[in-house]
């Protein structure tokens, strides 16, 4: 009896270990789903023809396994969200119609996620042009891929990285003919052309997020989700290029960026890996320039007074 139990335990453990290994994202080749969905081609046994067949994988269904492992949802397996029926191939047609969970289905009303303010995000998002135009069909996942999502704005200490990650969300549709048409039914506007008015366009695109100009900045929210209609987008340079720059309330507000700033004047200088005219001023140089300027004016005034006082005897 005891012996049988031991065999059973060993068997369960081994099977469990193999099963766990098979479902890990660590090795895509051994993952039941990823062995096909991380490749351009896949091979299966055609029972009707009784032979092995290779097919091309739909490129939109190929997953980036590195991004998948780095994503916040990497602890979940595919079938935690997708139907268990996907474990067989060919996949049956009707499971493709199953409703998938949205962010709020898991994260809404949960105290442990309170700091991410999912409800506030939803509230703001519902005011946005995306929701106003396309309603519930425009889900969170249109911008935030659940497969690969990372909270870059909260974790990265590199401005360019935050900008690139954020802008790629917008560009995935707004710079893709197919994706844009899928949602809007229209052709996407030429981004470079519509932003032609912007000087140094490339620099702007690399160093500020689209949402800096295209959203209503909310102090109480980490990332503003109220995407405005294009007519309301910001076009005034001084909104960013000033000492009370809008960027301070948006892109530069993150604690992870703030923490790079050392104390004092040099610290602020050294922590700068970006530069915005009018925003990134060096306090030490500013003070020094005032002192030199005022000093010079004082000297000139004194000199002028002496010249005036001296003029009279000369003229006599």
């Amino acid at each position: 009896m005891m012996r049988n139990r031991l065999i059973l335990i060993v068997f369960v453990c081994c099977f469990g270990w193999l099963g766990a290994r098979a479902q890990s994202y660590e090795n895509a080749q051994e993952h039941q789903c990823l062995k096909c969905h991380s490749n351009q081609t896949y091979t299966f046994h055609n029972d009707l023809m009784e032979r092995q067949e290779s097919r091309l994988m739909n490129p939109y269904f190929v997953l980036d396994t590195i991004a998948l492992k780095a994503g916040v949802h990497h602890v979940f397996d595919c079938i935690d969200c997708h139907s268990y029926e996907y474990t067989t191939y060919p996949h049956s047609a009707n499971i493709k119609l199953e409703p998938l969970a949205t962010c709020l289905d898991c994260h809404g009303g949960d105290e442990s996620f309170a700091k991410y303010q999912f409800e506030r995000i939803d509230e703001e998002y519902q005011k946005s042009v995306h929701y106003q135009t396309y309603g519930d069909a425009f889900t969170c996942s249109k911008c935030h891929s659940q497969h690969t999502y990372t909270a870059t704005a909260r974790t990265s200490s590199n401005v360019q990285e935050i900008v690139e990650y954020s802008n790629n969300m917008c560009l995935s549709c707004h710079n893709s003919m197919q994706e844009y048409k899928l949602v809007s039914g229209k052709d996407n506007p030429e981004l470079v052309e519509v932003h032609n008015w912007l000087p140094n366009q490339k620099l702007h695109f690399e160093n500020v997020r689209c949402i800096e100009c295209h959203t209503q900045v909310e102090d109480s929210l980490m990332v503003s989700h109220n995407i405005l209609p294009k007519e309301q987008a910001l076009r005034k340079c001084v909104e960013c290029h000033s000492s009370n720059s809008r960027l301070i309330a948006s892109l530069y507000k993150y604690e992870n960026l703030q923490s790079r700033k050392g104390n004092g004047i040099l610290g602020t200088m050294v922590s700068n890996d970006s530069y915005v005219i009018g925003t990134h001023q060096v306090p030490l140089l500013k003070t020094l320039s005032y002192i030199i300027f005022i000093g010079l004016i004082v000297v000139i005034i004194i000199h002028t007074i002496f010249r005036i006082l001296n003029r009279k005897p000369d003229d006599k």
């Binding site: 000087p199 005034k236 340079c237 001084v238 290029h241 000033s242 005219i277 009018g278 925003t279 001023q281």
Partner: peptide, 15 residues
């Protein structure tokens, strides 16, 4: 006007 960081609109707009 560009560097001062104040709204330079009083002389000319930033652009």
């Amino acid at each position: 006007s560009m560097q001062s960081g104040i709204d330079s609109g009083f002389i000319m707009s930033f652009d």
